[in-house]
C-alpha cells in the first residue's frame, strides 16, 4: 500500500524523499512561496510556506519546503494560526517593498490587499526581497561569486571584493530572481550587472563575429568536455551550419 499524508483533511500519496510542499503543489493545493525554487535546494528563510502540523511531527508551524512527507503526517495549509502568521509576514514585506509587483501577486493570491495593512512604516523602494535564490543558485551552480553581506536589517546581496572576476556569467541568478532586480545587460563585448558591479567578457564567434556566450563559461565547458572544445567556440547557428557542412560533404 502506498504511503499517504493528510493535507487539509485529504489524503495524498507521496514519493520517498518528497517534501510536503511538493506533494501539495502536485495536487494543486496553494501554498505561497518566495525563497523556494524548483531548481534549488530548499532554504526555509522566507517562512511564507508555513503549514501547521497536527500529527506526525512536532506540532506547530513548519516550513513546508523543508518538511519531509512521512506516513501519518497531518498538516493544514489553512488554519487560523497559519493565516494569521502568513498575513503578518506578507504585510511586513509589503510595508518594506510597497511597490514590488511580484510581492503584490503573492499578497493577492493569499487574499491580502495592501490597503488592509495596519502597519505603516518608512516606505523603501527596493526590489530585492532577500529571498537568497540568486545566492544559492551561484553557490550550487556557479562559483559562489555573490553572497550575503551585513546582518539583520542591513542584510544585502553583494559580490565581495575580488570575487567579481570569478563570475562565469551563467546568469542563473538572473533566471531565479523572483522580482527581476538581478539583471545582466549586453553592452559591446561584455555583459554587465550594475547591482553587484560585475562585468564578464563575451566570446565572439570566429565565423560570424557575433557575441553568443561568455568567455569563462566557454572555458569551463572546454575544460570539462574536451570533445566539444572545437564546437563550443562557435555560436549555435554557425555550429549547426558547420555540422551540416561536414555531414553533407
Amino acid at each position: 500500500m502506498a504511503k499517504t499524508i493528510s493535507i487539509d483533511m485529504r489524503e495524498f500519496e507521496f514519493d520517498a524523499g518528497e517534501t510536503v510542499l511538493s506533494v501539495a503543489k502536485r495536487n494543486g493545493i496553494f501554498i505561497p512561496t518566495l525563497c523556494y525554487h524548483e531548481a534549488l535546494k530548499p532554504y526555509g528563510a522566507c517562512r511564507l510556506c508555513l503549514v501547521e502540523v497536527l500529527e506526525g511531527d512536532k506540532p506547530g508551524l513548519h516550513a513546508s519546503c523543508l518538511l519531509s512527507a512521512k506516513q501519518g503526517l497531518v498538516v493544514l495549509t489553512v488554519s487560523d494560526l497559519v493565516l494569521k502568521v502568513r498575513g503578518v509576514l506578507i504585510q511586513l514585506l509589503l510595508k518594506r517593498y510597497p511597490k514590488e509587483k511580484s510581492l503584490m501577486d503573492i499578497a493577492k493570491a493569499c487574499g491580502i490587499e495592501d490597503s488592509i495593512s495596519t502597519l505603516t512604516g518608512e516606505h523603501q523602494e527596493k526590489a530585492c526581497l532577500l529571498c537568497g535564490r540568486c545566492v544559492r543558485a551561484c553557490e550550487e551552480m556557479g562559483r559562489s561569486v555573490i553572497g550575503f553581506v551585513s546582518r539583520g536589517s542591513e542584510r544585502a546581496v553583494d559580490a565581495p571584493i575580488g570575487s567579481h572576476k570569478e563570475c562565469l556569467g551563467c546568469r542563473a541568478c538572473e533566471n531565479v530572481c523572483p522580482t527581476g532586480v538581478v539583471r545582466f545587460s549586453l553592452h559591446d563585448g561584455v555583459i554587465k550587472n550594475d547591482l553587484w558591479d560585475i562585468t564578464v567578457d563575451m566570446a565572439v564567434c570566429p565565423i560570424c563575429g557575433r557575441s553568443f556566450a561568455t568567455v569563462p563559461l566557454i572555458d569551463k565547458v572546454k575544460t570539462e568536455l574536451e570533445a566539444l572544445s572545437e564546437a563550443i567556440s562557435m555560436c549555435p547557428a554557425c555550429r549547426r551550419a558547420e555540422l551540416l557542412k561536414r555531414i553533407c560533404v
Binding site: 518566495l34 526555509g44 528563510a45 522566507c46 517562512r47 511564507l48 502568521v85 503578518v88 509576514l89 511586513l92 514585506l93 510595508k95 518594506r96 502597519l119 512604516g121 532577500l130 537568497g132 550575503f148 551585513s150 546582518r151 539583520g152 536589517s153 542591513e154 542584510r155
Partner: peptide, 21 residues
C-alpha cells in the same frame, strides 16, 4: 534583538524592526 538578528529569515529581520519602531 534587532542589532543581533542575522537577517536570514523574514520574521526576525523585519518583525523585530517593526516591533522596535
Amino acid at each position: 534583538a534587532v542589532k543581533e538578528s542575522c537577517g536570514k529569515c523574514l520574521p526576525c529581520r523585519e518583525g523585530t524592526l517593526e516591533i522596535l519602531r
